[in-house]
């Protein structure tokens, strides 16, 4: 199941684990990324708290945590090559995996149709 936030993150849900990244729209708005900083595995993140930082030539931007949970895995590939986020934001450019505190919290997030309407 794919969910979205108004802060332009996507979540792919598999049971109580969510893979999190930024949307194609966000990646395009940010421009070519040159630096990515990810949370540490094991970090307990709160909904709307800072989860990651991305930087283009122009500016740094925060990536927020969409739900409460614990980071179980990070995508080192985007740290080594931030351009992956621009070339494949909703695939190889994923950021981290989150074990959700309450899997049902995801129900309140946007579905794809609602997100598309938001950015239209």
């Amino acid at each position: 199941m794919l969910k979205f936030t108004a802060e332009h993150e996507w979540l792919k849900l598999d049971g109580d684990v969510a893979t999190v990244g930024i949307t194609a729209h966000a990646a395009e708005q940010l421009g070519d990324l040159v630096f990515v900083e990810l949370p540490e595995v094991g970090a307990e993140l709160a909904k709307d708290g800072n989860a990651a930082t991305v930087e283009s030539v122009k500016a740094a931007s925060d990536v927020y945590c969409p739900l409460d949970g614990e980071v179980t895995e990070i995508n080192q590939a985007i740290v080594d090559d931030p351009s992956l986020v621009n070339s494949d934001p909703q695939g190889a450019g994923w950021f981290f995996r989150l074990k959700l505190k309450n899997a049902s919290d995801a129900d309140a997030l946007l579905d794809e149709a609602a997100y598309k309407e938001l950015i239209a």
């Binding site: 421009g31 070519d32 040159v34 283009s56 030539v57 122009k58």
Partner: peptide
């Protein structure tokens, strides 16, 4: 501030 090519490629 930038054209469609983007800051990196323009630079």
């Amino acid at each position: 501030v930038q054209y469609p090519a983007g800051v990196l490629k323009e630079h």
